[in-house]
Each structure stands twice: as C-alpha cells, then as structure tokens.
Amino acid sequence: MTRLSGNSKHSVRMTVNGRAHEGYAEPRMLLADFLRHELGLYGTHVGCEHGVCGACTVLIDGVPSRSCTQYAVQADGASIETVESLADGDTLNALQAAFRNNHALQCGFCTAGILMSATAFLEETPAPTELQVREMLSGHICRCTGYDGIVRAILEAAGVQAEGKAA
C-alpha cells in the first residue's frame, strides 16, 4: 500500500493507443488533463469537468469512461484509447468516415468523445436500432448538429462493419 502525497507529483505509466507513456501527476490531476497537457494528446477535449457532457470520453481498458471524473493516478498501468487511435495514418476508419459522410460534426469539439463511446458501443452492439443509438448518445451533449447526422453515421458505420464481418 503506497500513499501518494497530494503535494507532489508521482510517476504514472500507462499504455495509450498501444504505446507506453510515462508522465508525472499529483493525485488530483484529472486523467483528461494528464492526457492533454502531460502526454500532449490534445484530441481529447474537456467540456464540463463534472461528468455530464461526455466530450472527454476515452476507453480505459476498453471501457468508455469520462476522463474528467477519473484521476491520472487511477489509470497507472491501464491501457487507454483516445481519438488519436482511430485513423490509420491519413485514412479515416469506418466510423470516422461515416461521420464525415453524414455531416455528423460541425465544430467537432464533442466529436472525439462520441467517437470513443460509439467505438465501444458498436463492439458490444454491432447491429443497433436507432433507439439504442440515441440512448447511448444521450450521454453526450452536442450543441451543433441536433444529433441527426451522428445517429445516421453510427447506424451507417454499423452497417459497414456488419458487411465487413459478413464478408
């Protein structure tokens, strides 16, 4: 049992997007702040810092989680995926491409969190109904799109993935 002092920084190691990272954090540092300002992964955005808006959602050991209500020290040893993991170089993955095709983003600030939620959701629910998609999406706030394009994009991505699996 190690008690990490609140007044000093501690080494935090985690695998992010398949790559080992080490940074330093006080126990109170939000995971979102650590990813952004310590590791330089600015693709994860912070919208409310109280666990409601969903913009900062990342996958911690595969589980979609608000990174503003988790602390970096908690994720020591964890494997984390952020929006930066999705594309293959310049090539958007099926979900990202569906977002582009369906005008599922405008300002794009909430998008990273939604992409990460949808990634986990489609793994678990490969052929969702629109209602299931909306239910999942209700954990995110988007102020630009009215959600319509996002719903269509996720359904389209599910179709693409289903076809891919069938083939």
């Binding site: 049992m1 609140g6 126990p27």
Partner: peptide
C-alpha cells in the same frame, strides 16, 4: 474546476481500506 490536493491510496485489500 479542479479538486483540492489530496493524498491517494490505491487499496488492494479490504483490510487496507
């Protein structure tokens, strides 16, 4: 909107808690 400084323990057993 940031927490106050706190010490942190990742407890491995109920006994520790």
């Amino acid at each position: 909107m940031k927490p106050v400084a706190f010490d942190y323990v990742r407890a491995s057993s109920i006994e520790e808690v």
